[in-house]
Amino acid sequence: MTSPRRGAVAFEHVRKDFGGFTAIPDLTLRIEPGELVTLLGPSGCGKTTTLRMLAGLESPSAGRILIGGEDVTRLPANRRDVSMVFQSYALFPHMTIAQNVAYGLESGGMKAGPARDAADRGLGLVGLDGMGERLPSELSGGQQQRVAVARALVLEPQVLLLDEPLSNLDARLRRRVRTEIRDLQQRLGFTAVYVTHDQEEALAVSDRIVVMQDGRIAQEGTPRALYEQPASDFIADFIGEANVVPCEVDRVADGMATVRVGGLTQTVPARDAAPGPAQLSVRANAITLQEGNGPFGGKIVSSAYLGDHLEYEIETDVGLLFAIDAEGHAPLRPGTPVSLGFRPRGLALIA
Rank of each mutant, 00 (worst) to 15 (best):
E12A: 14
H13P: 01
R15P: 00
G20D: 13
G20M: 00
T28N: 03
V37Q: 02
P42V: 02
C45A: 13
T48S: 15
T48V: 02
S59L: 13
G69A: 05
E70F: 04
T73K: 00
P76S: 07
F86N: 02
F92D: 01
I97C: 10
A98Q: 14
Y103H: 10
Y103W: 12
G104W: 04
L105P: 13
G108W: 02
A119G: 10
R121P: 05
L125I: 12
V126C: 01
G132R: 00
S137M: 04
R146I: 12
A148I: 00
L166I: 07
L184C: 06
F190L: 10
Y194E: 03
V195L: 05
T196M: 09
D198E: 07
S206Y: 03
V211L: 15
R216F: 05
A218W: 02
P223Y: 00
L226F: 09
E228D: 15
A231V: 12
I235C: 08
F238Y: 14
F238M: 04
I239P: 09
G240D: 04
G240Q: 05
E241K: 11
A242R: 06
M256V: 13
T258H: 15
T265F: 08
T265C: 06
T267K: 06
G276I: 08
P277E: 14
A278G: 14
Q279R: 15
L280S: 07
S281Y: 06
V282Y: 05
N285G: 03
A286R: 06
I287A: 10
T288K: 06
L289H: 07
G292M: 05
G297L: 09
G298N: 08
S303C: 11
A304S: 15
Y305E: 03
D308M: 03
E311T: 14
I314R: 07
D317I: 12
L321D: 00
A323I: 04
A326M: 12
H329Q: 15
H329I: 13
R333N: 07
P334M: 05
L340F: 03
G341C: 10
P344M: 06
L347G: 08
A348F: 11
